[in-house]
Design a binder for these strands. Structure first.
Lengths: 251, 251
DNA sequence: CCCGGCTGTTACAAACCGTCACATTTTTGC
DNA sequence: GCAAAAATGTGACGGTTTGTAACAGCCGGG
């Protein structure tokens, strides 16, 4: 079963199995023969409104996926990491812009052929379906974060997400943050100042320790999970066993 | 092609074709033979964490779909209307609670059989896929709303969504709002007071006019669209042709 | 018919976060 | 390397939204 706590996947951006090796009839194998294209930091893979001709697989690097309101406000709906798919759940045109955060390598697959392959293979279909489910679950988590979480909870949630993705099961994972503070802010629905201040506060509390500007160490993973305000008590770390009061909403 | 501006569809809740009549090989026909079950206002169809045994079709009434944080904060990720599907994009357990807003009638379909039908039919699959795409698009819209829109823009966006869903193409549609202010607040990431104040302001501006407590008339649809802060200029109403400054984000 | 509970509205003070400003660090271009 | 530009950190201040509270309106029950 797929892990549910993946990075928020935007529309059409799908996290695939990280643990399943590519076998002939897996989503992974589809892109195998395609040439690798490189995108420099800040360059767009496609723009919102472009005709959706291709599906992409992230081979290396990180992408940001966003939409922009008419007055310039930007909303990043997700970040894509190696192994993720981009441009799947679309019909005729992309609903968002995809841009390289750092130097990124992609494989491209023609959209119509992708659909055909999926349609043809009873093995690929459940994989794709599971990916879409994960994508929706991540979108839901993000809605919860944006609708009801405080600035501190948002930043903590974000760091926790990256820590779980990159840090494995370590107790004090070292995590890389390739995106800028502005990217984080536009992803979390905050300003760069608030992100900056909040991370400073987390540092002063000893929850995190800055390594370089784009990397840090999570010193108290359990504390971070508590600050993230999660429903589930993923409390493998013994840093604080707060009682979970099951919320029963009066109707 | 499906309309993109549908009500935000939560995980597994899919808006189907409203214009396509049920034909033997359509999603609509699957539920045809199932008995209709009635849910009283406030009763749950299922709870977050329940084993996902069934897929539902909304026949009549409105549902709210939500998640609750450990301290009681509630986030409504979407409302479901007649014709919508519930519980599709899930694997083993429901990720949210579904509750009847008003008296609701549903048809139930066993989850495994639903999957089989989809797998078997090459006609049903693209329909389901298109539904999932709409669902993701709606989730994205909601993320934009929650991340960057002001209280007024959120309320305006919500009213516009309902107006377009129910009011058809009328210039001054009468729209029903079966949900409470608390539901609206938990959907829009606001408090009931803010929702109330904002609607009062919209009334004073002449944009809307209250009909009853759970119904109102949209007097200036174009103005409402402007207040909603949409990217696209859906300016069929001549109520104000503000210049759209295309935002080019400096990288 | 009146009453009690629930929902919705309005006012006011408070909190959180955004805005503005500037110092500091890092990166970029030459 | 050096200077310019960009990104980041930090503080003071203000605005939007929230929280608290009181009141009004609707609805069902006695």
């Amino acid at each position: 079963m797929l892990s549910q706590a993946t990075m928020s996947q935007p529309h059409g951006a799908v996290r695939r199995f990280a643990t399943v090796p590519p076998c002939p009839a897996s989503l992974n194998s589809l892109f195998g023969g395609q040439p690798v294209e490189t995108f420099e930091p800040g360059t767009a893979v496609f723009w919102e409104g472009d005709e959706a001709r291709h599906v992409f697989e992230v081979v290396e690097g990180v992408l940001r996926v966003f939409r922009i309101l008419s007055d310039g406000r930007r909303v990043i709906t997700g970040f894509l990491y190696p192994g993720d798919l981009l441009g799947v759940s679309l019909k005729d045109q992309y609903l968002y812009t995809a841009e390289a955060v750092n130097r990124t390598k992609l494989r491209r697959y023609e959209h119509g052929r992708f659909q055909e392959e999926i349609n043809r293979s009873p093995e690929l279909r459940p994989q794709l379906f599971a990916c879409l489910c994960d994508e929706m679950a991540a979108a839901q988590d993000q809605m919860v974060l944006l609708a009801r979480k405080s600035a501190e909870e948002r930043v903590a949630s974000f760091l926790l997400l990256i820590a779980r993705r990159l840090g494995g099961d370590e107790r004090q994972p070292v995590i890389e943050i390739p995106m800028t503070r502005l990217d984080m802010a536009d992803y979390l629905g905050l300003t760069i100042e608030t992100v900056s201040r909040t991370m400073t506060r987390l540092t002063n509390c000893g929850v995190i320790a800055p390594s370089s500007r784009h990397a840090l160490v999570v010193r108290k993973l359990g504390k971070l999970a508590l600050l993230a305000g999660e429903t589930e008590a993923d409390d493998k770390d013994g840093a604080g066993g707060r009682a979970i009061q099951q919320a029963v909403w009066p109707n």
